[in-house]
Design a protein around this nucleic acid. Sequence first.
DNA 1: CGAGCGTTTGATCGGTGTCAAGGATCGTGG
DNA 2: CCACGATCCTTGACACCGATCAAACGCTCG
Lengths: 249, 249
Amino acid sequence: MQDRSQTLSPMIDKLQLWRPLDPAEKRAILALPHKVEEARAHACLVREGEKPSHSCLLLEGFAFRHKVLVDGSRSISAIHMKGDIVDLQNALLGTADHSVETLTRATVAFIPREEMKRIAFEFPSVGLAMWYDTLVDGSIFREWIANIARRDAAARLAHLLCEFGLRLQAIGLGDRRSYQLPMTQEQLADATGLTSVHVNRTLMDLESRGLIARSKKAVTIADWKRMEDAAGFNEAYLHLRGQVSLSPP
Amino acid sequence: MQDRSQTLSPMIDKLQLWRPLDPAEKRAILALPHKVEEARAHACLVREGEKPSHSCLLLEGFAFRHKVLVDGSRSISAIHMKGDIVDLQNALLGTADHSVETLTRATVAFIPREEMKRIAFEFPSVGLAMWYDTLVDGSIFREWIANIARRDAAARLAHLLCEFGLRLQAIGLGDRRSYQLPMTQEQLADATGLTSVHVNRTLMDLESRGLIARSKKAVTIADWKRMEDAAGFNEAYLHLRGQVSLSPP
DNA sequence: CGAGCGTTTGATCGGTGTCAAGGATCGTGG
DNA sequence: CCACGATCCTTGACACCGATCAAACGCTCG
């Protein structure tokens, strides 16, 4: 942040979760033209139906993707954090099929879609890493489908909390067992196919079973193994290749 | 099929839904090394946890991706048909995070993963089309999340039937309003987060409301517009760019 | 023709939704 | 620094959609 030339470094860190990059490739990423904006909480970054000409990269803060159905109900399909290229889909596919909104105050870099295409083919390792990134996105979607389709409310929420912790830890933003969760219970409901009332009761249930502790927005997972069991959680779908499993229990 | 050199042409047709390809690019696709296999119905093409070294391309027949949860319940995350590259994810990401199984007897081409990577970067238009393809996959996953999370049983099934019809039509396999549905009610249940018993009752309900007609595996949608309304269906997420909407009502 | 799978049906149960109201917390402006 | 309004969280009573369990029926393909 201090050094203007390092602004896009979270993208490098994220892509290196998937593939190593050499210095020239990193320089090419840092040299991508972009404009940085500060967004307040609950700001709309992309609106369904628009034709975004830029990809947006989250440099700081959290965001989510969602759709609003005809009856007004809402479905959240992904949560995003530092380093995530939130809008590669919409930028490449033309018309946005869903909206993107900030969860918290956030810093976002907008990169022209043509530049994203260019760097992907000029530097195949970068392209492959970006492709991996979209494939891992897909893997997470599939797990969410299974989560919503086949797990009960307690397991669904436990699963979401496990995933969030692991992903935070993978990008160096803390410990999977204790973190700030920047979501309201209504947003948790929209991400799990429940109602906010039931999310409330279920969180209290998880707490009474000693699986989690809460205070304000902070969540603590008392015993990771028990939590995984309660969630039916298996981190394989995140494709984190061992970085995470090697960290202290 | 008759001409050995045209075996992979369904892949060209599929990719050209997303981007036009020039003759050299088409030739490169047709020249991809591959082996063709016939698979019987209910055959397993990829098993979760394996490390597939090949992508598999569906030349004929139908398949689906699924996960089995710890309690034995099953979640189907995608249905695939002619031209779909079913296993790009697993082949590129390393370890398969889900299984792939045939729905019907099928003809499948296996292409080495290294060849898929090579062609993607040697012919950027092909690479871009493949990337689009994975992005559209992601878009469909997001719609399924919304479908399962926020629609009731009747709308969920109606939505699945609309999608199936449109996709069949897009690859020239018939009319969106009347087709053979190669799925059992139990598979429909696993694809919609319901039980087979409830799928049965709901299909009969759709039938009694005059939205669909059934006989054996054939499904007919009486009035497309009414069906879309019942499903809350909006084809935008399929990113078919007008090919479909331009067809006769 | 028989076995096996898939479909249909009925009765009952339970997990989640709905509606409504009160209480806590946060952000903002004075 | 406090006051106030707006969100957000919590709680209760009740309704209902879809799950469960069990059994019979009908294809379809050896």
